[in-house]
Amino acid sequence: MANFFIILFGELQRMKRYNIVTASTVVALLWIGVLYLTEIPDITFIFPLLIYIDVTSMAILMVGVTIFYEKQEGSLHTMLVTPISKQDYLLSKSTVTVLSSVITLVILYLYAMIFKEIDLNFAGLLGAVILVALFHSLVGFLLTYSSRDFTALLINMMKYMFVLMLPVLLEYIRIIDHQLVENILYIAPTKAAMILLYASTGDAELWEIIYGLSYLVIGSAVLFVLALRKFEQFAVRESGV
C-alpha cells in the first residue's frame, strides 16, 4: 500500500509536468463556455449531459495518454522491474483519472451555482462521477492495451463513442425516441452511467439506480481483473518482445 501512494503522488506530479492538468482545465473551460452560451437559465437538465461526455471520454483518454507517454519515453520499461505491483499501477492511474474528473465536476458545478440555476444532489452526482470515471478508466486500460499506438487508441475510442456513448446521449436528448432501442441500450455501460448521473436530478426510478450501481460496480470489478490479466501481455509486448 505504501507503494500505491508513492506511485499516486508520482502520477499527480507527472500529470502537472506533462500539462495533462492544463489540458483537463482547458476542457473544463470549454464546458464552461458551452454553459455560458446556453441561454436557458436553469441548466439542471443539461449539466449531467456535459458531465457524461466529459467523464466517459476524458477517463479513457487520460489513461491512454499517460501509458503512451511512459511507453514512448521508455519509463514503462523501468517501471516493470520495480517492486510496484500491477494492482498498484492500475489503481494509481485510475485514482488520478477519477480525481481529474472530480476536479472538472467541482469547477463546472461552482460555475453553475454562481452564474446559472441548478438544482441537483451534488453528493449523488459526485458518487456517480467517481464510479463512472473509475469504470471508464478501466475501459481506457483495455483499449490502450489493444492499441499499438496513440492513433490506434483514438480510433478505438471513437468506436466506443459511436457504438456506446452516442446512442445513449441521443436517447436522453430525445433524438432516439423508440422504446425498443431504449430497452436495448440497457446493455450498454454508458446507459448505466447516464442513469446514475441523472439520478442526481431526481429523474430515475429506484430500480434504475440499483441497476446502474450494480452494473458499474460489478463491471468495474470484472474490468479490473481483465485489465490485470491483459497487463501481463502488454508488459511482455512493451518489454521489447
Binding site: 507527472r14 519515453e73 521508455g74 520499461h77 523501468t78 522491474v81
Partner: peptide, 12 residues
C-alpha cells in the same frame, strides 16, 4: 536493471 535505452520521465 540497467537498460541501454533511456528509461526516465523526460519532463521530470
Amino acid at each position: 536493471v540497467g537498460f541501454e535505452v533511456p528509461v526516465h520521465f523526460s519532463k521530470l
